[in-house]
Design a protein around this nucleic acid. Structure first.
Length: 378
DNA sequence: ATGTAC
């Protein structure tokens, strides 16, 4: 497997084993980003893949200046894991799918007290709270497939007999509007630390983090409500955000874009919808800029997925996976874009980080039912 | 990624 912490240049580190597929374009973007003014260190995670100008699956540490474009539009996007009291043996995907129904519409009036409590004052964006959105977002009921650390897992009130719920979503239109306003004013030059516009951006950013966390909580509660189940939040971790940090004795700004923090407790790193997810205990390390992968990482561009797969699979075939799980995705483009084939095998991603000494795996989670969208488009 | 832009 070789060395999993690769030093690509003085300031660029890549966390990946030799056999982890990383697209050349993503490495190029990593190097380009490392040359921004004030940029001190960048670290690519094993799920690194190309983004719009900047790579996804990476952490960036700068001093004196911060770069909203490096966090992207989905500020606060992240993963939440919940326990449920649903019996893993008596909850087949068909039954869950039927009971869940359609959760694409805005939350109704009965939810509005909780909505205003969790996410007050997001003018124009309140109606998206409690909805998953598109792209790689999902909510997934899972079985605990294997426990590697029984003590740690029991301490979280997780039980193999009960399903868990993993929610991946973000700040919907709110974060995008914050980035859009910022780019309109400042382009890609970034913000000088302590300037009025920087203070203003950080306040908006923090609002988007709160909104995104509230959104994940509302999605989970809404699903539990539909399923007639109870549950508790186990963890909620953002992977698109900027935080103040000290790296190599310097104070600055740690940007994460599709990079899970490794210095804030337990995390879940999901594979594709036809693959396992892993509950893990991070081992904080400056070498990875205190970050981990946020998923398996795309192997194929969204635009090429349908052409590559349409002859092999129908949408109906893609709604069932090799692990026996069901996928609710009535958007014919999205179901191809999110096909398991479009992603790297998650085991190679987890192994890279384990080998690099960045995490310990606690449990392996197996998908039962993934909800993407019932509405569809086109 | 998007209460999308075309």
């Amino acid at each position: 497997m070789g060395n999993c912490i690769q030093q690509l240049s003085e300031s660029v580190t890549l966390i990946a084993s030799d056999d982890t597929w990383i697209e050349g374009n993503a490495i190029q973007q990593l190097h380009t980003t490392s040359k921004l003014a004030g940029m001190r260190r960048v670290a690519g995670m094993p799920d690194l893949h190309p983004g719009r100008g900047y790579p996804v699956g990476a952490a960036f540490f700068s001093t004196g200046r911060l770069y909203p474009a490096l966090i992207g539009g989905d500020i606060g996007c992240g993963m939440a894991l919940w326990t449920t009291d649903l019996d893993a043996r008596k909850s087949p995907a068909e039954k869950l799918e039927k009971r869940l129904g359609n959760i694409d519409a805005p939350l109704d009036d009965a939810w509005q007290t909780l909505v205003s409590e969790l996410a007050p004052a997001n003018v124009g964006f309140q109606q998206a709270l409690g909805t998953i959105g598109g792209g790689n977002h999902f909510a997934e009921l899972q079985r605990i497939d294997h426990i590697y650390d029984p003590q740690a897992v029991a301490a979280l009130q997780l039980d193999m007999k009960q399903l868990v719920l993993l929610v991946h979503s973000g700040s919907r239109g709110l974060g995008g509007s914050i980035l859009e306003q910022h780019i309109h004013r400042h382009g890609h030059a970034g913000l000088v630390q302590d300037s009025a516009d920087c203070v203003d951006y950080l306040a908006q950013h923090d609002g988007a983090l709160q909104y995104a966390e509230a959104n994940r909580q509302l999605i989970a509660r809404r699903m539990l409500d539909r399923l007639g189940a109870n549950g508790q939040q186990v963890l909620d971790v953002h992977h698109n955000l900027v935080t103040p940090a000290a790296i190599q004795g310097e104070n600055g700004w740690l940007h994460r874009k599709g990079a899970t923090p490794s210095d804030t407790g337990l995390v879940v790193i999901p594979g594709s919808r036809g693959d396992y997810s892993y509950l893990a205990a991070p081992i904080p390390s400056e070498a990875s800029l205190f970050s981990l992968a946020h998923g398996a990482g795309r192997k194929w561009m969204r635009s090429e997925c349908k052409d590559r797969l349409v002859k092999r699979y129908s949408p109906a075939q893609l709604s069932r996976t090799k692990l026996g799980s069901h996928v609710v995705c009535q958007d014919k483009h999205l179901i191809y874009e999110e096909a398991p084939e479009a992603y790297k095998p998650v085991d190679s991603i987890i192994a890279s980080m384990e080998q690099a000494g960045l995490l310990t795996v606690l449990a392996k989670l197996r998908p039962v039912l993934t909800y993407k969208t019932r509405g569809g488009c086109c």
